[in-house]
């Protein structure tokens, strides 16, 4: 059974936890450095990226997690989690940092403020149509060729990736954990 951590500093931790349990993973809530040991994978949930980044620093998790990711830990980041994994953050705080492990630039609230938050259907490569819940969602604006794009969405301004992967690192603009469809979590856990 795969042991998957959910970064539990802030955000929709319990939705990810129940999804991961549904697809057969053993789930660990990660609030401290010690809880990072012996994980096969880690989910960075939705929430506020500035808050999670702040708490990653104060908890001392940041440098340890950086090392674990370097050493090959698999990570799935949704929404705020995607921002934390991005190479470049647009419209963020001037001092906003990230783990810089996905070769893309992402614009915070790129799909607009809450009033523009939306639900749609996303076609995921090899999976089919999944519900896409975008909440103050980050928009991937530029991306490198060695990024595998598993799903695009066109919101009236051309196609932008919304589910991407580079080797062990996965990023998602929307919130599969808020729906009843567990196929994206299954995809991540099956690849561990």
């Amino acid at each position: 059974m795969a042991r998957v951590g959910v970064l539990a500093l802030q955000g929709d931790v319990c939705e990810h936890t129940s999804m991961l349990e549904r697809v057969g993973a053993e789930v660990v809530a990660v609030r401290d450095v010690e809880q990072l040991d012996t994980l096969d994978g880690l989910v960075m949930p939705g929430g506020e990226s500035t808050t999670i980044a702040y708490l990653l620093t104060t908890s001392g998790i940041r440098p340890i997690l950086e090392k674990k990711i370097d050493d090959g830990l698999s990570v799935l980041g949704t929404c705020a989690g995607l921002i934390l994994l991005a190479h470049e953050i647009l419209d963020g705080r001037s001092d906003q940092w990230s783990f810089d492990v996905l070769p893309l630039s992402v614009r915070r609230n790129g799909y607009g403020r809450q009033i523009s938050s939306f639900e749609t259907v996303v076609e995921v490569k090899g999976v089919g149509e999944v519900p896409g819940v975008f909440i103050r969602a980050p928009k991937i604006e530029t991306w490198s060729d060695d990024l595998e794009v598993l799903a695009f969405h066109d919101h009236g301004d051309g196609e932008h990736p919304v589910l991407v992967r580079r080797e062990r690192i996965w990023g998602c603009s929307f919130h599969p954990e808020l729906t009843n469809d567990d196929r994206i979590h299954r995809l991540f856990v099956d690849a561990l």
């Binding site: 955000g11 319990c14 929430g47 929404c79």
Partner: peptide, 17 residues
């Protein structure tokens, strides 16, 4: 836009904050 899911969803994102 404006579905119950996206409206409640933002509250979900604020959890633990």
């Amino acid at each position: 836009i404006g579905s119950a899911l996206v409206k409640r969803g933002l509250a979900d994102m604020l959890r633990g904050g």
